[in-house]
């Protein structure tokens, strides 16, 4: 029964991926990609990785989907100008890709048994940190440096996106197409839902210490709510030059870095936590990171400045 479900799930995911690649219209391809992402999130649940499933549904499918949809809509007029490659070229590419798939598949099926695992180690050391969720434990204790650097990558990507603005618009307002009708049901949704979404975001961040959830998932929810408010035209997008906005962007990484550096003084190593204070410090860092991630993801999706700031 469970195997049958898994087979149909995997089959559907492959079909949707093929559709995403092959369908003529880019907009349909992106729509298929969003559905594909949601089904992949279901596969993550089946692989007993609920934290990843939440991240995939929120960021991999949701926020990425919003970004790609807006790009597909903007690029639609230019679509027909591109000629597809010839049949011989496609066949050759198909053969190469089939060989790569077969090789990877063989490797994946012939992985060593019993599989190497770090799970016992992670589980044995988890109580020391005071956390209950092993994935959060790995993210914020054992591989904290990765997590910190990843925040820096997010900010760097945003700097890259912003620097694509025309010089005279630097610090201006991103162009998010506002809603087509000024006062519609979308407005109502954007007035009603964000407060509920904010609570859920805070909940996901807070519960992430002990249950599936965490800063990424909570932050992505904040992003979704913010994008909804901006797209419905209830609140305008902020100018990228605003000092308060920039402070929000770096608040999370900075706080995390300060906690990491203070580890030298109080626990003898970078990103080490003194015994007994691990959990509170991590929760504080996670709270700030959730806010920063939410703002960063939203601005990444909003794109570079395209309107001048009002004086």
């Amino acid at each position: 029964m469970a195997l049958g479900f898994d087979i149909s799930l995997a089959f559907l995911v492959v079909v949707l991926a093929a559709w995403t690649i092959q369908v003529h219209d880019t907009y349909s391809a992106v729509l298929a990609f969003v559905v594909f992402g949601l089904l992949v999130a279901l596969i993550w649940v089946r692989l007993a990785s609920v934290d990843v499933a939440l991240t995939e549904a929120a960021i991999g499918s949701g926020v990425t989907g919003a970004l790609l949809l807006s790009a597909a809509a903007l690029l639609r007029p230019t679509e027909s100008t591109v000629a597809p490659p010839g049949a011989a070229w496609c066949t050759a590419a198909g053969v190469v890709c089939a060989i790569i798939t077969a090789g990877l598949g063989a490797i994946a099926l012939l992985l060593p048994d019993p599989a190497p695992t770090l799970a016992p180690l992670a589980a044995a050391n988890l109580p020391q940190s005071g956390l209950g969720n092993p994935v959060t434990g790995v993210l914020f204790v054992y591989r904290a440096l990765d997590t910190l650097l990843e925040k820096v990558v997010l900010v760097l990507a945003l700097v890259g996106v912003w620097s694509l603005a025309v010089d005279r618009l630097w610090g201006g307002i991103p162009a998010l197409w506002p809603a087509t009708c000024p006062d519609s049901t979308l407005t109502f949704l954007a007035q009603l839902l964000p407060s509920v979404g904010l609570m859920l975001g805070i909940y996901l961040c807070w519960t992430g210490a002990d249950h599936p959830g965490g800063a990424f998932q909570g932050g992505a929810l904040l992003t979704a709510m913010w994008l909804l408010v901006m797209l419905a035209g209830v609140r305008a997008a902020p100018a990228t030059g605003l000092l308060s906005l920039r402070l929000l962007l770096v608040a999370g990484p900075t706080l995390f870095l300060v906690i990491g550096l203070s580890g030298f003084a109080i626990a003898g190593a970078f990103l080490a936590y003194p015994p007994g204070y691990g959990k509170p410090l991590i929760v504080v860092a996670e709270g700030a990171l959730t806010l920063s991630i939410g703002v960063t993801l939203g601005l990444l999706a909003a794109g570079p400045a395209e309107r001048a700031r009002e004086p």
Binding site: S195, L198, M199, Y203, T207
Partner: peptide, 25 residues
């Protein structure tokens, strides 16, 4: 979250944040 003392403080904070957002919007 269910009824638990540790969650209540965060819950009050979250409720105030959500109330503020809902009053603004």
């Amino acid at each position: 979250t269910g009824l638990s003392l540790a969650d209540l403080a965060v819950g009050i904070l979250a409720a105030l944040v959500a109330m503020r957002a809902s009053l603004v919007l």
